[in-house]
């Protein structure tokens, strides 16, 4: 799996309340959720995000509420990959389960700036900053998780009998 896009950068402890405020949780419509993505943290996000863009963030990205609406909103807004120093655990498993690509790589986060163009080759665990030419190595997903992602998420994995 390969991803390429422009970087939108955030800090530590980005919580799911700012990713998608609870006042919009009276819907589960993907496009509607995407239209309010990041609203309480960064009102400009929805106007500048482009298909394929990559978010980088600091520690504990996605902390707080278990709302799956948060990774859904990010994915539906066009973001192809989230690179963070660490993820909150419910957000981490929700992203895997719905097929939003995420990866932990503190060095890449420190070495990549807002607006840089980045390419991530997740099969080989390489993140390349096309703007600066620097490369960062990441650990691949565990096999079990890889299997879920390859099958397009947890639902498909169960529907196709891969997980019983």
């Amino acid at each position: 799996m390969k991803y390429e896009g422009k970087i939108i950068k955030y800090g530590d402890n980005v919580d799911t309340d700012v990713i998608i405020p609870a006042r919009y949780l009276n819907t589960s419509d993907h496009a509607e959720l995407a239209s309010h993505c990041m609203e309480d943290l960064d009102k400009t996000f929805v106007t500048r995000v482009q298909q394929g863009d990559i978010i980088t963030a600091g520690f504990n990205f996605g902390c707080g509420s278990s709302r799956e609406h948060a990774p859904i909103a990010i994915k539906a807004s066009g973001i192809s990959l989230v690179i963070a120093k660490s993820f909150a655990r419910i957000f981490y498993r929700n992203s895997i389960n719905i097929g939003l690509a995420i990866v932990e790589c503190p060095e890449a986060v420190d070495g990549i700036s807002e607006g840089d163009r980045v390419e991530a080759d997740m099969d080989n665990g390489i993140i390349r900053n096309l703007t600066t030419g620097k490369e960062y190595k990441t650990a691949p997903f565990p096999e079990f998780v890889q299997k879920i992602i390859e099958n397009g998420g947890l639902i498909n994995s169960i529907a196709e009998g891969i997980i019983k």
């Binding site: 929700n94 389960n97 639902i155 169960i158």
Partner: peptide, 20 residues
């Protein structure tokens, strides 16, 4: 433990969940 809606759906279907 808290999970998301997809885990809930799968839990309702097969009575199991994956954990690290």
């Amino acid at each position: 433990t808290g999970v998301g809606s997809t885990d809930m759906a799968c839990g309702m279907a097969i009575g199991k969940a994956w954990f690290k």
